[in-house]
Nucleic acid binder design. Structure first.
Lengths: 146, 146
DNA sequence: CGAATATAATTGATATATCAATAAGAGTGA
DNA sequence: TCACTCTTATTGATATATCAATTATATTCG
């Protein structure tokens, strides 16, 4: 493989997130069999943050509103979430976490914590901060030219 | 949003790659209308590296063999690639880039270069090296626990 | 050689990503 | 109030991700 490609750090960003997601999914599946990484993140997001519209949630989670609609749909089917009407704006829904959803959060929260710790093992706080700022720089470079 | 989540650098890795892919797709589509980022990467990979099996290519490109099969299938349909029999191992194919594929590479190579430059603008070689090594560390942390 | 095993690629099923189009409701101004 | 515009969410179409199962071919070993 050509050196230039092999060493493009953007390849490595892609590789990193894929490995992280793979590990995460595996550890999640060991505890809760019918939930995906993305569903899990949504569940935890909802638990920590109430009152956002789907559009806002999509932004926080870096997802398209279309994707989020479908993720929610599946989670409603699997009885993790419930849609309630929003009285002040009937285009929106209030998402409610079901009892099953809440139990699941209890099971998964430590798994997520563990995944993050595992992934970042051996990196100092300073290194993590640096990584964060370099990635932010790349992100804003990409956004500018859009 | 809870501080802990907002600041997890792993979120940022995900955000970064998504923004990069979005920008890349936009710039690619401006030049060649019917090709995706992944198809483009495969095309350029094949141009630079001949003789790998699909399994090997999948590893280089961080893809599943199933995904790669489907990407190739679409590219054959769109006349970017051609499958030829491999005489020594009939399970494998030799992928050949068509004339259309070769023209397309000429058009896209500078776009890809430009995308990378744009994304990494303002980062020193040293910073890029650091980013690379931090990501490598995370990747190997994730692989270990699998 | 021939049976068992291993490997390469494909296929099926389901989830997510992305863009475009649409539907339904909210807001605004004449 | 009503027409126009904007926003939110959904839906459709297509591409990719992932896992499991399958097919076809290679390899290995008795």
């Amino acid at each position: 493989m050509k050196k230039e490609q092999k060493t493009s750090v953007l390849y490595k960003v892609e590789q990193t997130i894929k490995e992280y997601r793979k590990m995460s999914q595996k550890n999640i599946s060991d505890v809760v069999c019918d939930i995906t990484v993305d569903q899990c993140l949504l569940l935890i997001f909802l638990n920590d943050n109430a009152g956002y519209s789907q559009k806002e949630m999509a932004e926080f989670l870096f997802k398209d509103t279309a994707s989020l609609t479908r993720i929610i749909e599946l989670m409603v089917k699997k009885d993790y979430l419930k849609r309630n009407m929003n009285d002040t704006d009937r285009r929106k829904f209030n998402l409610e976490i079901t009892a099953k959803g809440k139990e699941t959060i209890q099971l998964l929260q430590p798994v997520i914590q563990g995944n993050r710790q595992t992934a970042l093992q051996g990196l100092s706080q300073q290194e993590i901060g640096l990584l964060d700022s370099l990635l932010s720089k790349i992100t804003s470079n990409c956004k500018e030219t859009k």
